[in-house]
Each structure stands twice: as structure tokens, then as C-alpha cells.
Design a protein around this nucleic acid. Structure first.
Lengths: 348, 348
DNA sequence: ATGAAAGCGCTAACAC
DNA sequence: GTGTTAGCGCTTTCAT
């Protein structure tokens, strides 16, 4: 195609060159089946020779849609949770592209007005993007402590899909996609039971985490399913390496578990610290399993077995639901629960 | 503000309510100093009561700008390089917000061509966004193997700032921001020298990596500055855990270094693997330093000392240069080289 | 199958 | 300071 240094070509330019009207060019782009093949061909050539692309702003104004999906990202916190979201983000960009959408990122700390001075507004940023019709829809991801955005967005009739179940509002009707954490942990338990372990400890998060309780229930139920006891084999704390280490040291001293299944890779790393300090070798003396299959799990010696969320699939399903929502199709099934897999490495 | 379920308010709606013309409302938004205080106040009230936000598409069409910054993200490769880019991305979103911009993500188009040496077309995706005026500018990040995008974008008069020096085209005039890798490695050398080490090995990338050679030069020059020999103490390979492990095992056998300074955290993890297999303890028997201060460095036992890039500052400088470029201000200084810091942990 | 007219919501240019 | 006019580039009627 040609390099033009002058003004960018418009529909009118193309129409002139092709010797047709502007609408015909528009049709060539949006409803090519309406054109006679020879006309289409001529228009196509004009488009190519001019290097024409339809102006996005004009199209957006006319069609009242931007083909943009909004996603709020939080400031870099440096933890495995963030890392999972980053992996998801890449997948979302790919899936969106396939559906003809781009991803627009915004941050939670924008648009500080009188109403938001008192703390982090869970709804910050959404409002303005919505009212200014900057995006067609949102993907809501930060649902780990309930999902205040969902209700708000629903009341505004804003199209969105959540990555995460409406834990605290079971009656919610908005579309969502989530990963079955309990099933993932059950996978891990099955795996270490198969390796001959019977005293399998759980190192998890505090009770106020919905996700943490879901994963923990996978441990409890799978253990009981195998006829194993969970008594005194569980610890709870924050999502830090330090907590994982402390918990493992305490359990090792009192209960002598032979396997640790952990709510996150971060916590599992702490368990690995503790084993190293106790001169125990992960994978030989004691099995360790993490959750999220982060980069850290891949590179830590000797390699950490970990539950992996199917984030590519999550992204595809989300974009899929978004498409249904935006085309006002009835949504067949508002919630989808996907199954994780287990990535086995030398720690187990 | 009021909740309206009908059609979204426009300038005309606000003008009616405030009893002024549309242009006055527009001025209230864009040039408030032009209004008499009492008029401004009245318009402001009408805006608030209606919950009005200017329509983005209309504004974009008129002003020929979208206030969007385009950034290409590559499919998740699962390595430390990606992780650094993700950390940068969060910072970029924050900095962009402060400048009134949003970040639009796009991906290298279509399917990976088997014939393409480096996997993807370096210019894929930029073209369309540019021609359709979907973004005002680009941030170009994937300059690790030279920067083919830069020349192309310059020839198109496309505003952009690069994260990464124009290694292969020193005469390039486009604005860029980069981190001084050599200085970062020198920091690491100083640190281990201070700890009493003299036989300090370098585990790096192949010669075809500009970034790798830059970091390596920091090792060579700092070593010589300290009067230390670099002879036979260097290894080169890919950015993998496996290579780091092999290199460390080989060096340990033949040269018995007491410290390893590595081109990346990934490679450093491989060195840690090797030490563990050799029953050597990092931080006690042998010092190890990585590069990037990734999550893995933070959580691996016993904690990996690592060079940290000032990505928040990089993002700020980039947005700053972008602002100058977009406002057609003369750019004071097209290239900025920032200094990294050293995060000391127990591995050294 | 193609063309003419209208208008999406906003701001630049100019009048008053 | 404020109002009037025009038009950014596109798509949606509707006529032919």
C-alpha cells in the first residue's frame, strides 16, 4: 500500500478513487455481501492502494460502541496473586483480539472526588469510563473478598463478566467464570495419596477469604474421601512466605506430617524454607504442593508441584459471555466453573 | 448526582438545564477560566445533577486524539523477562492516569509464522491502530534484540517512546528510556567484593543479546576496576534454569568461584539448583546475585540478592517524554538512562 | 445493488 | 463572556 504523508484518507477519498459513493465503500467494509463482486473488487483495490483504515472515533460515535473492554489493574503488589492476574491478562488480550476487541487498562486510584477521599473505592474508575462510553464492557477480576462492583455495575445496566464467583451473593444473576479451587486441591491430595502419604497437612489462609475456604474444603473432603484424618493437620495465616515457614515448622514439630498441600505458591515457598532449615529434602523426605503454578514454582529448586488454573480457557469463556451479553443474546448459563490441572514437579 | 435510566445526557441537555448554550458548557469543561464564576457554578451544578460525562467518541472525533497509549503485549511466555514487563505495565498504567491517558493493550497479530526467526512480526498490530487513529502514541518495549519497530514508527511519524536503547542504531533520534544494566551489575560486584569475594563468576546470555552484553560489560569493567581477574570465569547460554545449573556445575568443577553474578533471576535460580545438588549453601559457602528482583527472587529460600530496575521511574519518564512529544514541544533530551538498585537478601 | 440525506456529540472558528 | 455556525468521519434510514 502507498505511503501518504498528507491527510489520512477517509471514506470519501476511497469513494472518489473507486468511483463510487461513500456508502458503497462503507458497505464494502461492513456488509460486503451487498456489493456486486466487481464493485467490491474495485473498492478493495482503492482501499489497499490508499492504505485506508476506517477512523475509529467516527465509527464509535456513530455505532455507540468502542470495541474496548475495560479492566482495572491494581498497583503492583508483588505477590503470586498479582502474577496470576498478569497471566490472565495476557490471555484476555489474546481472546479479545479474536473477538475484535481491545483491552483498556485503568487503575483504581483515578478520579478522586469528594466521595472517594475516605479510602479505596471499589467502584473507582468504573463510573467515568461508563458514563463517557469509553468502553463497551468490563471484566471484573478482584472478587477475592466478595464483589461489590458486581451489584453496582448491575444496577447501572453495565455489561460485565466477572472472573470469580459471587461468593457473598449466591442469588446474583450476572455472568461469571471461575476456577474450581476445591477440585484443584483434591487433585493434589489424590496425587500425594498415590505417592503413599497419609498424614497430609493443609497450610491455608484466614477464614475471611472465600477462595481460601473453597480450597480448604477440597482438602477436607478429599481427605475424608480417602478415609484419612484432618485432625490438627491444618494451619491458617496470611499469604506470605514467613507464614508458610512458621506454619510448617510448627506442624513438623507437633504432628510430623509427610506432605504439605498449600493454598498458594507463596505459602508453599515458606514451607520449602522450613524444610531446608530442618534438613529435610522436598520430594524425598516430604512432599510439597503449591497453588497457581507461578514462575517461582517453576524455577525454585527442585521444582514445586502446583495446581494450575486454566487461565487461557477462563479468558476465552469470559470473552464468549461478553459477546453474548453485548449482542443481547440470552445468556445460556450465567456461571461457569472450570477445572484446574496439576503440574507435577520434583517436590512431590 | 442523579440516576437517569433514559438516554445519556449530552452537552445540549446540560445547556438546557443550565440555561446557556452548548458552547458555554464545553468551555466550562475545557477552558473554565473563560467563564464568569457564577455561570461556571451554574453549569457545574447542572453537570453534577445530571451525572454528565462528555462522550469520548465525539470528543475524540473532533480533537483527533483518543488519549490512549498503545502497548503491545506478547503471549505469556512464562519467564522472568515477562514478569519484568508486567511490573512495568502496572507502573505505566499509573503514570498514564496521572497524565490523563489510558493504556490500550494489543497483541502481535494472528498466528506465529514458522518461518519468522524471532517468532512474531515486530511491526504486527501497530499499523492498524495507527491508521485508524485508535491510539495517540505507542510505548515500545520489546527492544531486547534491537528495535525494528522504532525505525518503522519514525518513518510513519508515529509518536512513540521506547523502553530500551536503540542498540543497533546509535544514530536514532527517537525518545527512549532505559536502565543501565552495566551499572546494576557493577553494584552487585561491589557488594560481593565487599563481602570478601575475589573469584567472581559471570553467568550470562549469548553474544547476540545487546542487553546481555551490556550487563556483562559491567562485570568485566568492575572486576578490572577492583584489580580482579575475569579469566575463565564466564559462561554464556540461554535464559533458562537448566543453563544456569549446567554453567554453575561446570564452573564449580574447574574454577571454584566463590560468587556467581547472573544476567537474570532465571539463570540465578539454576545456579541455586546446582549449589543445592553440590551441598553448598548459598549465602554461607557461596554468594549468588540475580537480576530483575522478580517474585521468585523474593520467595526462593533463602532469598536471592538481585538487581532491581526502577520501573516506576521508567514509566514516569516515558509518560513524560510522551507528553512532550504529543504537545510538539522540543524534546530536551531524547534518551534517559536510569540507575538500578541492589536488593540484598541472604544469598550473598 | 447503489446513492442521497441526516445526524451521532463534540469543539474550533468566528461573530456579537 | 457568550452564542452561532460548521463539520470531524462514519453508519443508518430511505429512495432509486
Amino acid at each position: 500500500m502507498a505511503r501518504h504523508s498528507g491527510p489520512a484518507p477517509t471514506l470519501a477519498t476511497v469513494a472518489d478513487v473507486a468511483g463510487v459513493s461513500r456508502q458503497t465503500v462503507s458497505n464494502a467494509l461492513n456488509s460486503p455481501h451487498l456489493l456486486r463482486p466487481e464493485t467490491l473488487e474495485r473498492v478493495q483495490q482503492a482501499i489497499d492502494s490508499l492504505g485506508y483504515s476506517p477512523n475509529r472515533a467516527a465509527r464509535n460515535l456513530r455505532t455507540r460502541s468502542s470495541h474496548l473492554i475495560g479492566l482495572r489493574v491494581d498497583p503492583a503488589l508483588e505477590g503470586t496473586a498479582n502474577v496470576t492476574m498478569d497471566r490472565f491478562l495476557h490471555s484476555l488480550v489474546e481472546s479479545s483480539k479474536d473477538a475484535g476487541y481491545h483491552v483498556l487498562l485503568f487503575s483504581s486510584e483515578g478520579y478522586v472526588d469528594e466521595a472517594t477521599v475516605h479510602g479505596v473505592d471499589p467502584v473507582a474508575g468504573y463510573e467515568d469510563l461508563l458514563r463517557s462510553t469509553a468502553v463497551d464492557a468490563f471484566v471484573v477480576t478482584d472478587t477475592y473478598r466478595g464483589n461489590p462492583q458486581a451489584g453496582w455495575l448491575e444496577s447501572r445496566d453495565a455489561p460485565f463478566v466477572a472472573f470469580g464467583r459471587p461468593w457473598d451473593v449466591p442469588a446474583a444473576t450476572h455472568p461469571w467464570v471461575d476456577v474450581d479451587g476445591a477440585a484443584g486441591v483434591a487433585l493434589a491430595i489424590d496425587h500425594v495419596v498415590e505417592r503413599g502419604h497419609t498424614r497430609i497437612a493443609w497450610v491455608g489462609w484466614q477464614k475471611n477469604s472465600f477462595i481460601g475456604e473453597d480450597r480448604r474444603s477440597g482438602w477436607v473432603e478429599s481427605m475424608h474421601g480417602h478415609g484419612l484424618s484432618t485432625s490438627r493437620l491444618s494451619a491458617r495465616g496470611e499469604d506470605t512466605v514467613a507464614f508458610g515457614r512458621r506454619a510448617a515448622l510448627a506442624l513438623l514439630e507437633t504432628e510430623r506430617p509427610t506432605a504439605f498441600v498449600c493454598v498458594s505458591d507463596t505459602v508453599a515457598m515458606g514451607v520449602l524454607h522450613a524444610l531446608q532449615e530442618s534438613d529435610l529434602r522436598p520430594g524425598r523426605d516430604i512432599a510439597v504442593v503449591g497453588f497457581d503454578d507461578s514462575v517461582a514454582a517453576q524455577v525454585v529448586p527442585p521444582g514445586l508441584t502446583s495446581v494450575r488454573q486454566p487461565l487461557e480457557q477462563v479468558a476465552r469463556e469470559i470473552v464468549n459471555l461478553l459477546g453474548q451479553r453485548l449482542s443481547h443474546k440470552p445468556i445460556e448459563q450465567p456461571g461457569r466453573l472450570l477445572s484446574p490441572t496439576l503440574t507435577v514437579r520434583s517436590s512431590s
